[in-house]
Amino acid sequence: MTQMIKNKTKEQGMTLIVKTVTRLVINVVFLYGIYIVLQSHTSPGGGFAGGVIIALSFILLMLAFGKDAVLKKLNRSKAIFIMSLAAVIFLFISIMGFITDQHRIETIPFSDIAGAFMVGMGLFVIFWALIRSTEGKE
């Protein structure tokens, strides 16, 4: 049984060309997402766009190398935990701007980072849950 699962995981993913290109590109995509998030203070970008790029890098990895290559590094409970923590931090920043004098506190980078983690992990979790639900119907 384990041998069967191993064979199945070896066949997962796409061809060698896609895997090689993904291996070259994936770091650049991930870093570009982080750059978009961190630079949104001074140049166009923002937490939502950067979060979507980060999620897309994980989705690209999952499409090219199969499901288990990603889930080894970022399993479901960890992704949900990061998503929920980022949402709570975003809510806390918003409420803090409501309570205190918001002209004095610099909140844009922090809420950008929290929103990026929230959006990225949320889209990744949605994608993963959808492909899991279609796999179960075989």
Binding site: H41, P44, I108
Partner: peptide
Amino acid sequence: GSANLVSAITLRFRGYDALGEVAILFAAA
């Protein structure tokens, strides 16, 4: 204090819009 005006508007002037969008995405996930 932000040079990017779009970021300043979406996260400071209209911060509750961004909070609502995050809440919508969280609820969707």
